[in-house]
């Protein structure tokens, strides 16, 4: 696609929704710069927040600044006991130890901090019927979704730095897919819109078949 100037390929795609009116702009880097649009992906607030939280987490292991649960309120497991067995005691442990667990998860999962992928099918269908609140409980709110995208962007940047371009392209596709999950409120989207917008959740049932 050509830029509005008609001279160069458009590489920046902006979709703005104001009072329900959708405006799409496709620009080359030069034109985008003239219009004062940032060239690089703007780091979403949630990404900055995620970084902040994991820093807090790193500190809290040494000497907690923010009080973290010493014990899981559900099963009574302590974080020290978890470090001994490397096994958590119950699903609530993930919430109780979210702060100290975050840096550990990031290291274990190559920078992955948020789930991207399948969502329990029946739970998804049931919450669709129950309305936005139930959906949010299952899929997380806007901040959750943006954090998910932020986590993917970081992985993409790392892949580019490591010159793993094929991998970076795959993560870009993943970002497009995750971005296409129906937002609950209007927001500017800097990713090019996917060719086949998929309503619903990050659900493999609506996902393209894997290439091999």
């Amino acid at each position: 696609m050509l830029c509005e100037c008609g001279l160069r390929e458009a590489t920046i795609h902006e979709v703005t929704i104001t009072n329900g009116v959708r405006v799409e702009r496709h620009l080359c880097e030069q034109c985008a710069q003239k219009l004062g649009l940032p060239l690089h992906q703007q780091a979403p607030v949630s990404e900055i927040l995620a970084k902040f939280v994991s820093k807090q987490g790193a500190q809290s292991v040494v000497g907690p600044r923010k009080p973290t649960a010493a014990q899981c309120p559900q099963c009574g497991l302590t974080f020290a006991a978890f470090k001994g067995t490397e096994l958590l005691g119950c699903p609530t442990c993930y919430e109780a130890f979210e702060v100290p667990l975050s840096p550990l998860l990031e290291r274990t999962h190559e920078g992955g901090t948020h789930h991207v992928g399948k969502v329990p099918k029946r739970a998804l269908e049931a919450s669709r019927l129950r309305g936005p609140e139930a959906m949010e409980k299952l899929l997380g709110g806007l901040a959750e979704r943006q954090a998910r995208i932020g986590s993917l962007r970081k992985q993409m940047e790392d892949a580019v730095k490591g010159e793993q371009y094929e991998r970076a392209a795959q993560i870009r596709d993943e970002i497009r897919r995750v971005s296409s999950i129906a937002p609950s409120e209007p927001r500017a989207e800097r990713e090019p819109p996917p060719e086949n917008p998929e309503p619903g959740g990050p659900n493999p049932h609506s996902q393209e078949p894997p290439r091999s």
């Binding site: 699903p91 998860l105 999962h109 789930h115 399948k118």
Partner: peptide, 20 residues
Amino acid sequence: DYAFSPRFGYLTACPTNVGT
């Protein structure tokens, strides 16, 4: 009902398996 969270996905006893 599976143990599932929006942030961490499918919850597993060992955090090395969490997510998908």
